[in-house]
Structure formats: C-alpha cells, structure tokens
Amino acid sequence: MELGTQLLQYLLSGLATGAIYALIGIGFSIIYNATGIINFAQGEFVMLGGMVTVFLLKAHHLPLWAAIPLAVLIVTLVGFLFERLAIRPLRKATPISLVIVTIGGSILLRGLAMLIWDKDTHSLPSFSGDDPITVAGATVLPQHLWILGITLVLITLNKWFFSHTISGKAMRACSCNPRAAALVGIDVRRMVLFSFVISAAMGALAGIIVAPLTMTSYDVGGMLGLKGFCAAIIGGMSSGLPTVLGGLILGVLESLGAGLISSGYKDAIAFIILLLILFLRPQGLFGKPESERV
C-alpha cells in the first residue's frame, strides 16, 4: 500500500477521533464561559452517557432508538443535580475551589458508576452495521459517519442557540460580565444551571456515539475528559468553531503521530500540545489576545 493511502487512512481515523474530542471540548467551554470554571466532571458525563445506554439496553431491553434519548435525558438530569447540589451552594466560592469541587464530583460519579453497574467493559451495537466503506483505498465505518454527522449537527445547533436565541445571548452576556448581565435583569444563576445542563447532554451524546467503536466502562471518563480539555484549550475555550478545529487537529495529530512516529507517544502528543499552547498562546491557537470569548 502506498504512502498516500496510508496518509488518507491516518487522516480519516484522526478526524473521527477528533470529532469526539471536539464535542467533549465544547462541553468544557460552555461551562467555562458561563461560570469561569473548568468542569473536570465533563468526562464523567461522557462515561455516564455510554454506561446508562448500555444499562438501558441490557437490563431493561429497550431498543437502541429509545435507550439513547432516555440516556441523554438521565445524564442531563445528573448535570442538573450536579449544579444544584455541588456548584450552586458554593456560588460565593472562588473559581479554584469550584474546580476542586468538580474534581471531587468526577471521582464520586465514577465511584457510583462502578458500584451501581460493574467494573467490566461494555460494548454498544453500531447504529447501522459494521461494513466498512472504502474511500480511495482507505476505509471508514458507518459509525464514523454517524459521529461526524452528529457532531456537525450539534455544533450548528450550538452556534444557532448562542447567536439567535434570547437564552443563548443571555448566557453570552453572563460570560462577558456577570454583574452587568444581572443588572439588566438576566438571572445569572439560571444561566449557570443551563450551561451544566447543555454540557451534560452534549457529553452524554458524545459518550453514546463513540461507545460502539471504543467500548465503555466506568473509568473511560478520565482520558476522554482530558483530551476534550486539550481540544478546548487549543480552541481558546471558545464554544464555537475554534474548539471544533482544536479537537480535529488533536485527533489528526495523534493519528499521524501513532502511524508515522510511534504509538507510544500518542497521549504524549496531546499533552505536549496542551503545554505548548498554554505557554505560547494561552488565548488559543486561533484567538487574538484579549479577544471576546463566545
């Protein structure tokens, strides 16, 4: 097989993985923009999405089309409760203590998942078969197309929500200046709650659409969360296109690195990028310094 096909395969694999990082990364940035904190429990929402779906399929024998929306709903509720019980009571706290609260929350959620279900790895059936599709010598699975498609739809919805609805605009206002937003009558606390609900739902969906390819278990949240965080950092914590590009770039670089250099450095690549961005361009790869974050 010649190098061209190989490169195309690396690129396609990378884009599919990157789309997931992008979805998770956007969850990070939505909460960051509404509250100024990094929610390290974002990865656990992803894990819960996959695990709840597996549980609904196996224990309650629901069909896939019913299990998925129900799982997203349940995880959204978890996100809602998480904000109510862990974040809101501490609204006067500094961002650093809230970040630590989210780390504690993530450990709690992971432990609960382990106790409620088990420590095993589970697989979900693919949405539409496992027959590979050939693209100029390289192959993708139908599930990859689902991932890319759903990511695209979610990103578009997200963009529309933040630029064209009152709630979305209100959330942006809170991120610019919570005090001024409160003065013009925006309920800042409700916007914070909103941000957790949206992030939980997006995380859950990300967890569900990757589970047929990557499997899921109670402890998948940690690494996926970190990769999503990297994507958000590359995108300068924007909840729009830059984070999506950040995720895709990360996915492709990982895939190229694993294919052309050595797979031993795959995770190292992500974290080296994270450090470089934080040192050299803390505003993100595409942002201008002091630019407004949306």
């Binding site: 097989m1 190989q6 395969q9 690396y10 694999s13 599919a16 993985t17 990757v210 390819l213 990557t214 499997m215 998948v220 690494m223 895939s255 190229l256 694993a258 294919g259 050595s262 797979s263 031993g264 795959k266 995770d267």
Partner: peptide
Amino acid sequence: DTYGPKDTDMTSQLTR
C-alpha cells in the same frame, strides 16, 4: 508496535 491500555482507535498501527 504498541498501543496504550486506554486507547480507543488502533487503525494507525494497523495501517502501518
């Protein structure tokens, strides 16, 4: 070649 215990996509290694 090697892969990480938590890796979720090994198409790169398999392509090689």
